[in-house]
Design a protein around this nucleic acid. Structure first.
Lengths: 132, 132
DNA sequence: ACAAAATGATACTAATATGGTATCTTTAAC
DNA sequence: GTTAAAGATACCATATTAGTATCATTTTGT
């Protein structure tokens, strides 16, 4: 089971490339050429990032996308949340009562603990840290 | 994203019930009545557990399934592996080169670390510990 | 012997999530 | 006004997940 889905992956690659590339406004073509991501899919992804305020889009000839958030401020989990929703690793065990004592069950505690740890670790990963 | 899929969940509920129930051979009907799991789906799951040596099946009238492994010895990860395969949380990032220095990238290290931790914690959860 | 009650084996189907395409509209530069 | 870009949105393909259906085989009890 993967932690990262493909659109998240593509989004991160695109953002990384945008930072490395350095130009102010980067057109989709440039990303497509370099990252080998299918253009319409990537466009959809970039539109989402635009709506979420990570990128700012510019229409018309010469248009493209500008990164408007400091790479130090973009967390991996931000991008994951955008494309995958919240993590919720510990969900379905307790929808019904597998466990005799739902409230105090050590499994629930442990799964919560695991999830907390994963979130904590992921939260420490910034876009900037992926480029070093 | 869930860590546990439905068949794993059902399998664990069934095993827990079997332990609590206490009788030597438990028929599917009993599990279906108590756990509200669709019978044909549960049967498929139990057949798998039989093949994997967690349960032993008995055919014919009065048949059913017997738990043949000590609940202390059944790990949550055993059941997860059976129905979901290995975890592989850190897969797809490095199929292609998102990262300039694949070998030493701190992200890879951190994802590995996360996965190791999750596996370590999950490995400490036995069927018996779910019943206490 | 035979009916009943159980699992074994296996193929099929339905629902959902994922990974895209296609198409048309709007905007901006030249 | 033409061209090159993004916006919006509907659609489609594939894979995974969840579940059904069916028939064969085995065992028990009469």
């Amino acid at each position: 089971m993967k932690l990262i889905k493909r659109d998240t992956d593509y989004a991160i690659r695109a953002l990384c490339f945008a930072v490395k590339d350095g130009r102010d406004i980067i057109p989709v073509s440039e990303l497509v050429n370099n990252l080998k991501i299918p253009r319409p899919f990537l466009r959809k992804i970039l539109q989402v990032l635009n709506k979420r305020g990570v990128l700012k889009s510019f229409r018309g000839k010469g248009g493209g996308f500008r990164l408007v958030v400091d790479p130090q401020e973009i967390l991996l989990t931000d991008i994951m949340k955008i494309f995958q929703g919240p993590l919720n690793l510990n969900e379905c065990f307790f929808k019904k009562d597998i466990c005799p004592n739902k409230k105090t069950c050590s499994l629930k505690k442990r799964l919560d603990k695991i999830e907390k740890y994963v979130l904590y670790e992921l939260d420490s990963i910034t876009l900037a840290s992926l480029l070093k």
